[in-house]
């Protein structure tokens, strides 16, 4: 039980995950942050979609400026 609670304590909400996905475009995430984000994205289609959309926006802005 203790270990489940411990894991849930590290569980990211979609709100938190979306912030981390955005910050990943500015700085390198720590190993722990990357692990936490991967755990979240593995089970969350919405945030996976969100991450792809941010990557697409970056590509669109790259095209825009070049």
């Amino acid at each position: 039980m203790k270990s489940i609670k411990h894991l849930l304590g590290h569980w990211l909400s979609c709100k938190d995950a979306s912030r981390v996905v955005s910050q990943a475009q500015e700085r390198s995430l720590s190993a722990f942050e990357r692990w936490r984000l991967r755990m979240h994205l593995a089970v969350c289609d919405k945030c996976t979609r969100f991450e792809r959309q941010l990557q697409f926006m970056r590509e669109a802005l790259r095209r825009y400026r070049s």
């Binding site: 909400s13 979609c14 709100k15 938190d16 919405k46 979609r49 969100f50 959309q53 697409f56 590509e59 669109a60 802005l61 095209r63 825009y64």
Partner: peptide, 26 residues
Amino acid sequence: GGWAAPPADWGDPENALSRQQFFDIM
């Protein structure tokens, strides 16, 4: 902390990159 309005399906967004109108909207 869950999405109130989750991101919608954008289909193949790459198609937009060949449309000037998309960049006008952006």
